[in-house]
């Protein structure tokens, strides 16, 4: 079952990669504000002009 070594190695590699990504994103303040992003994504910047609102509802 040597292939286990391989799978565990790659699984760990991926997991550690994500752990590092998590720590970096945490340190960079990605999770300092856990509310505004959820609201901000609702605002679209599509053509501020004419028919922007009318097209919305389907």
């Amino acid at each position: 079952m040597e292939v286990m070594v391989l799978l565990i190695f790659f699984s760990l590699l991926i997991a550690i990669g994500f752990l590092i990504a998590f720590i970096i994103s945490l340190k960079r303040g990605q999770y300092d504000d856990l509310y505004t992003p959820s609201v901000r994504m609702l605002f679209d910047d599509r053509d501020k002009g004419k028919d922007a609102d009318k097209t919305g509802e389907s």
Binding site: Y35, S38, M41
Partner: peptide, 24 residues
């Protein structure tokens, strides 16, 4: 889902936590 309902996700904090838990 938030876009279609035009309201923010129930808990943004939960979304972050469950993402990291899920992939690990």
């Amino acid at each position: 889902l938030p876009k279609a309902a035009n309201r923010p996700i129930f808990s943004y904090r939960l979304s972050i936590i469950h993402f990291w838990a899920l992939i690990f």
